[in-house]
């Protein structure tokens, strides 16, 4: 058997809101596009288990990109970004994902993201329901205050270790140690983006009072939350789902805030349930 993974990497140029990005993405599989957003301050290796899963990639084209300023996606090509404080807005985050979908010429994609990726999934369903077949907000909620902290980028502390160990408790003790440490390792690499990402997560993202406007007949919504997530708890996920007409909620046991990265086999069981729910809902729509 070849030791070369079927996962391939590419760069695509994305123009959005006057900014030009060279975006790196990993992909594998054939079928309906399943576009995957990593968590704040991380990169697309969080989706490594899904990208190499032969069962899922038999039916889905899994695309996991690095958001600009993360992993191999550089900050904007055409601005002096180093002269400004990075604060990710809901407008720009949502516009970027639609521009990426356009650049890749994707038809009826499913969007899945975790944490701030779960929150932007809800924003996409709210703003662009005609552009996505479905969204799977993982560890997402209508509102998630409290994590826009100076500690992530404090010059008197080791920011890499604060980001890695400050998010450690978001994972479940049952998750394999090696996978938790990989996730920790990704976090040590993203400390210059983490706090700015959390501006979106904890400050600019606020769908309270707007969830009822989401049209699940156009864009299905299946939320999933792990029981060890202390930031967006299962109660937050259930509350959010209950206010979206037609949305589904799945509580994931014995897993935390980075489910796809900390314990892919457990996450996969729930993901298959979510994809089945989406297939049922969209077949009714057709």
């Amino acid at each position: 058997m070849s030791k070369i993974s079927p996962v391939t990497g590419h760069y695509v140029t994305v123009d959005v809101d006057g900014l030009e990005y060279k975006v790196f993405y990993l992909e594998n599989g054939q079928g309906q596009p399943l576009v995957c957003q990593h968590t704040a301050g991380a990169h697309n290796h969080q989706w490594r288990g899904l990208l190499e899963d032969p069962e899922i990639t038999a039916s889905y084209r899994v695309i996991a990109y690095d958001l600009p300023r993360h992993g191999k996606s550089d900050p904007p090509e055409n601005t002096q970004w180093w002269t400004e404080e990075y604060q990710l807005s809901a407008d720009h985050f949502a516009n970027f994902i639609v521009a990426l979908v356009d650049a890749l010429e994707l038809v009826d994609p499913i969007f899945m993201g975790s944490s701030f990726g779960g929150n932007i999934a809800l924003q996409l369903a709210h703003r662009f329901p005609e552009r996505f077949d479905a969204v799977i907000p993982v560890e997402g909620a209508d509102y998630s205050p409290g994590f826009y902290l100076d500690w992530w980028q404090h010059p008197h502390a080791n920011a890499a270790q604060v980001c890695g160990s400050g998010t450690w408790d978001l994972m479940a003790p049952q998750s394999p140690e090696a996978d938790r440490w990989k996730t920790w390792f990704y976090y040590t690499q993203g400390s210059e983006a983490f706090k700015g990402d959390l501006y979106f997560y904890s400050v600019d993202h606020d769908l309270r009072g707007k969830l009822g406007e989401i049209q699940t007949n156009k864009c299905a919504v299946v939320l999933m939350t792990g029981e060890y997530d202390y930031l967006t708890t299962p109660e937050d996920g259930a509350r959010t789902a209950s206010q979206i007409p037609g949305a589904e909620f799945i509580e994931m046991k014995a897993i935390g805030h980075f489910p796809m990265s900390e314990n892919y086999p457990v996450f996969k069981g729930y993901l298959v349930q979510a994809l089945d729910l989406i297939r049922t809902k969209t077949s009714v729509r057709a």
């Binding site: 502390a157 080791n158 270790q161 450690w168 408790d169 978001l170 202390y230």
Partner: peptide, 29 residues
């Protein structure tokens, strides 16, 4: 859940982190 670390218990239970929290952060790992 929520008793699995000082961040979790501080956000969701009755734990308090007090004093010079910068020193805590410097030694967090």
């Amino acid at each position: 859940p929520m008793y699995h670390g000082i961040w979790a218990a501080t956000f969701q239970r009755d734990m308090k982190l007090e004093g010079d929290v910068l020193v805590l952060m410097q030694n967090l790992r």
